[in-house]
């Protein structure tokens, strides 16, 4: 069996880590669109707004890769259930609806 067996873990971890990154604002990089400047980690807005979305994606990507690498030896003996690959992201989407409810109920 190849390393593809860890893919459900990757997708689940990506969703969870992304949600944590958004909620805790853990961005690997920050973009300042008004000045066109990039910076490492989460930076506050200075001249114009600061964009963290790119940084959250990178945080989630590297976080999920690390989790997958750690889980890989475990999955040699215990195959992860497939449903976590879609159910965890789906649950994360519901969590985002809850977290962003203030835009709709104010």
């Amino acid at each position: 069996m190849s390393a593809t067996r860890v893919i459900p873990v990757f997708s689940a971890a990506f969703a969870i880590i992304y949600a944590i990154a958004v909620e805790a604002n853990l961005a690997a990089i920050t973009y300042h669109p008004k000045t066109g400047a990039w910076g490492w980690l989460t930076q506050e807005a200075t001249d114009g707004p600061a964009m963290h979305w790119y940084g959250w994606l990178i945080t989630a990507l590297f976080g999920a890769l690390i989790v997958s690498a750690v889980a890989l030896p475990v999955t040699r003996t215990r195959q992860p259930v497939a449903w976590i690959g879609w159910a965890v992201p789906l649950a994360t989407m519901v969590v985002f609806l809850y977290l962003l409810r203030s835009f709709f109920f104010y």
């Binding site: 593809t4 893919i7 459900p8 990757f10 997708s11 990506f14 969703a15 992304y18 958004v22 979305w53 959250w56 994606l57 989630a60 999920a64 497939a82 690959g85 879609w86 992201p89 994360t92 989407m93 985002f96 609806l97 962003l100 835009f103």
Partner: peptide, 21 residues
């Protein structure tokens, strides 16, 4: 739009699993 950007990101993470299935 805030929901869109989060959903798109979650979908990106699902792509490897989508390929697998």
């Amino acid at each position: 739009f805030e929901i869109k950007e989060q959903f798109i990101a979650v979908g990106l993470g699902m792509l490897p699993f989508y390929w697998l299935v």
